[in-house]
Design a protein around this nucleic acid. Structure first.
Lengths: 170, 170
DNA sequence: GAGAGCATGTAAATTGTTACATGATTGA
DNA sequence: TCAATCATGTAACAATTTACATGCTCTC
């Protein structure tokens, strides 16, 4: 999976600007993927050159002009190929778990703060994700796989929260 | 968190070679951090120059010579500073969830295979991690925070497995 | 008047992977 | 004899982040 595949997936539904794409990342799947504008804009130009997407300048009133990108038939083919590939191994990078791992080298106070803070952060992520799921589902904006995708995030967050809570209690 | 902090943590316990460090990554925390030799060796040289670690060449019989690295007092100070910093946000990058998210654009067969394979892969990771936890705990090689660290991995894997199983059944 | 949102883009720097190169020993 | 393990290192490349640059509109 590279960012190109993800952009093609988003454009499969309907045309988006670079700015829209970034918002989509944040709104729909910030919990398992993210990219910055510094990656998005150069990638869009590259994909245009490759013929996977096409650009159309759109004038707006009261707002800056924008470039709307549409997927081409080649882009669609490319994306279908991606979908049929087996999924790559998932990668987690957790500074919290690293701190915890070396916990015996720090004092109890530091460790207690670490756990409390991790719990708070994860609870916030849980609430955010649950709220998004509710809102999007209510207005029928979620397919069943998208719902499963978010629910998978939720059940894992929940398991984490329970475990950290029980560790803090003992 | 960068790889330097992680290396300092490992060297806090006892001296290691670059090769040992890589094995430690794999054995103890491959599920939340990893790095290749291409990163480890240049980093070790850099850290030596910075005075965080020192190098000692060791001759071995029947095996290639190796460089053993020891943490210096400056390195220890550096690591203590790391431990007291708040943990950075954790980052997950999941190609499986991306495939699932765009699932309605693929056929049922493809999606079914995706879920089956994700389930199999996660079950394997669960078994691996549980086995490691058992083995290391039995010989008293785990501190309580290290145990919690691994258990946190296990409960999240378990939640994932349950959810995917129930999705496959329905 | 400040800050947030909308909108695009570049440049520098960092970070990291993959592949290559070398070479001995051990076990199947 | 082949693959795996031990052991170190470089070089090319890929990916990505952060900071900078610009500028309008709307809300507080």
């Amino acid at each position: 999976m590279n960012i190109q595949d993800v952009i093609l997936g988003i454009l499969s539904e309907k045309p988006h600007s670079g700015y829209d794409i970034k918002r989509h990342f944040e709104e729909y799947f910030s919990f398992f993927f993210d990219a910055s504008f510094g990656t998005i804009y150069p990638t869009l130009s590259k994909m245009e050159k490759l013929g996977l997407i096409s650009r159309e300048a759109v004038r707006q009133e009261g707002k800056p002009d924008k470039n709307m990108f549409t997927i081409t038939p080649e882009g669609e083919q490319h994306f279908q190929k991606y979908l049929r590939q087996p999924a790559e191994k998932e990668v987690l990078r957790s500074d919290f778990l690293m701190h915890l791992y070396f916990g015996d080298m720090a004092d109890e106070e530091t460790m207690h703060t670490l756990l409390r803070e991790a719990l708070r952060a994860k609870q916030e992520m849980y609430d955010d994700l649950e709220h998004k799921l509710q809102e999007l589902d209510k207005i029928g904006k979620l397919t069943s796989s998208q719902k499963l995708c978010m629910e998978l995030g939720l059940v894992q967050y929940e398991a984490f929260i329970r475990k950290v809570q029980s560790a803090l209690e003992s």
